[in-house]
């Protein structure tokens, strides 16, 4: 599914991602964790081809993500709490627009199904700009799932959500990932969420991988009861 080899990204003298290598070979939710500035978002942007790497390679579905950009991206998608949608378009129009970009057949059926799942179907004829941030986040996720991606990158998707909306999103992602055999690469600062959702975690710090294992194994190897304590422990080690 995803194979990253010796990936490095430097911005001038600053090294955001420092020679990392890892692979993901099965469906599930993989948490990409770390403090601010650890290189999580940069890694996701590199995977999506929004940034050119300084060195190293990224292969997705066995293909180079730069050479086979269109082919790879047509089977992927992305959502972030920090990225918007055209606010002057209605929910339905937004989804129709993106269905053309991803060449989605029977898009309306798929859109209705996803809007229903994320409990925002009644907003279909509202403008995106009129939605609350929680509703907009859920619309962004519907957009991200519109093309039935095999590989989904989510950058802090629950960052702006209230606990109820966050729970809806978590439940849906868990179910959809299992039902549609989807791989989700997920960044979050909410360690309770990570514990609940992730089958595996990759812990980044200062652009390097500190750990790659299941949350359970990580907690038991460090003899800690929660992922939040694991987070503090790994940070302490570094200091």
């Amino acid at each position: 599914m995803l194979q990253i080899s010796n990936l490095t990204k430097k911005f001038g003298k600053f090294t955001a991602v420092d020679d990392i290598s890892f692979g993901i070979d099965r469906p599930g939710i993989i948490g990409l964790l770390g403090p601010n500035g650890a290189g999580k978002t940069t890694t996701i942007y590199l995977i999506l081809g929004l940034i050119n790497p300084t060195s190293g390679s990224i292969r997705i579905f066995g293909k180079d993500n730069v050479k086979h950009r269109q082919e790879v991206l047509s089977k992927m998608n992305f959502s972030s709490a920090f990225v918007g949608l055209p606010s002057n378009l209605k929910v339905r129009e937004n989804l129709k627009f993106f269905s053309y970009l991803y060449n989605v057949g029977e898009w309306e059926k798929r859109a209705d199904y996803l809007l229903e799942r994320f409990q925002i179907r009644e907003l279909k004829h509202k403008k995106a700009g009129e939605l609350s941030s929680g509703q907009l986040t859920r619309l962004n996720l519907v957009k991200a799932l519109l093309n039935d991606p095999c590989f989904l990158c989510l950058d802090e998707p629950t960052a702006s959500l209230d606990p109820v909306s966050a729970k809806i999103v978590r439940n849906q992602l868990k179910e959809i990932s299992a039902q549609e055999k989807m791989t989700i690469l997920y960044t979050s600062h909410n360690m309770y969420e990570v514990e609940e959702l992730c089958d595996e975690v990759i812990f980044l710090h200062k652009g390097k991988i500190k750990a790659k294992t299941t949350p359970k194994e990580l907690m038991s190897s460090l003899k800690l009861a929660s992922m939040e304590n694991v987070f503090f422990e790994l940070m302490k080690e570094e200091e």
Binding site: G49, L50, Q70, L73, F78
Partner: peptide, 9 residues
């Protein structure tokens, strides 16, 4: 919306 465009094909 610019990132949404360029993460698409």
């Amino acid at each position: 919306n610019i990132l949404n465009l360029f993460v698409s094909p």
